[in-house]
Simulated scan of single mutants.
Amino acid sequence: MKHVIVIGDGMADYPLEEINGKTPLQVAEKPNMDWIASRGESGLLRTVPKGMQASSDVAIMSILGYNPTKFHTGRGPIEAAGMGIELEEDEMAFRCNLISQKEGVMRDYSAGHITTEEAEKLIETMDKKYRDLGNFYVGTEYRHLFVTKHLNDEINNIQTRPPHDMINERLKDNIIEPKDHKYVQALNEMILKSTNILSNHPVNLRRKKETKRPANGVWIWGQGKKTTLEPKFDEYGISGAVISEVPLVKGLGVLAGLNKFETYQDTKFSNLNYEEKAKLGLAKIKDYDFLIIHDELPDEKSHAGDIEKKIDAIEKVDYLVGKIIQGLRGKKFTISILPDHPTPIEVKNHTAEPVPFSIYSTEGRRDKVEEFDEYSARRGSMGKLKGNEFINKFLSL
């Protein structure tokens, strides 16, 4: 039996007036997701426990079968695992975004989806400048890592804010707390001075000439100490892998005992090669019993508030799902489609409502749900599950 989970990041949404009171999932052409729903069982999944931040690290940790209230220590150490960085027990890892700011105001949390090649030069500049505070590590595009050297118990409870939560807000109003701690002051100074350091960097001078948004600042957030997860899939006696372009998702896979793989990513985020992603998925499912394929494009378009492009992103994920189903025909398999969390267009951010999920198994049952969306799933026979209950249900079919 082969098992495949496809996660369309942020696909779930609210009804929108612009599309006649329907959600993007309801209006998108998604015959393959609907195929899973109409031939399998559906339900709702609460991936974000009450009181926790609605984020992919929390949500996907739940989907993998872990209780985030017990295991989640922060986003940074998860991304470190995905990047192959081994943290010491007394270190703290921060996610580091390259951002675009103008006159001290956050304009773009991704610096126009800067390329990894450009980002590497900027991150190297920051690393040389601030090695007395910690180390910067190059990730992909705008997503990087900063690891402290000077951690102590006094600052274990510092508070940071994700850059995608503060678009059009002043940087100074969102700096790290508590501001009166000496080391936190040094980190905040680094964040605010990064604009002066990076603005006239050759990479940004070239980007300005090309009318691209400059990556003229860094923003560190999502901090945490080393995360340890007990390999979940050893319990089931199965081997598994994760396919994603996102270090966070790869990191969760690694911590859960999965192997990680990524597909080619074009310099423009919207040009992900879905054909190649599907081929890689089908190649790996030959080698492994269990596979997670994650796609972030719907979430990116949700943060941008672009309804049409979110619908298009959902349809791209559906194409990927169709290729996987086609490649599995004739075999015994179980496949599920779900978002990790909602990212509603009207708020341009993550929310914590339960997400729809559908599971089809060649050995399973079907209910009366005919389509995959937020409202159809409410009628599903699976009912409403806690996030970390999902994986047991999925693997038992």
Results as ranks from 00 to 15, higher is better:
V4K: 03
I5C: 11
G8L: 14
G10T: 10
M11Y: 04
Y14F: 14
Y14W: 11
L16N: 02
I19D: 02
Q26H: 02
A28Y: 01
D34L: 06
D34W: 04
W35A: 07
R39D: 05
G40S: 11
G40D: 11
E41W: 01
L44V: 10
V48Q: 04
M52D: 07
A59L: 10
G65L: 11
G65M: 10
N67S: 11
P77S: 07
I85R: 03
E86D: 15
E88M: 11
D90E: 15
R95W: 06
Q101V: 14
A111C: 07
A119T: 08
E120D: 10
R131Q: 11
D132M: 00
D132K: 07
G134Y: 10
N135H: 13
F136L: 07
Y137Q: 09
Y142E: 03
R143T: 11
V147A: 09
D153I: 09
P162I: 05
P162F: 06
N168D: 15
R170C: 00
D173I: 03
N174T: 04
N174I: 06
D180M: 03
Y183R: 04
Q185A: 13
M190Q: 02
M190L: 14
L192I: 12
N196L: 05
L198D: 03
S199P: 00
N204A: 08
L205M: 13
K212E: 15
R213C: 00
N216Y: 04
K232A: 12
S239Y: 00
G240D: 07
E245P: 00
P247E: 09
G257V: 05
L258E: 06
K260S: 15
E262W: 06
N273L: 03
E276H: 02
A278W: 01
L280D: 01
D289K: 03
L291D: 02
L297I: 13
P298A: 12
S302P: 00
A304R: 10
D306K: 08
E308T: 04
K310F: 09
K310Q: 06
D312F: 09
D312E: 15
D312Q: 12
D318V: 06
Q326K: 15
G327M: 09
L328H: 05
P342V: 13
P342C: 11
P344R: 02
K348N: 13
Y360F: 15
S361Q: 09
D367P: 03
D373T: 05
A377L: 09
G380E: 10
G383K: 08
L385H: 08
I391V: 13
S396L: 07
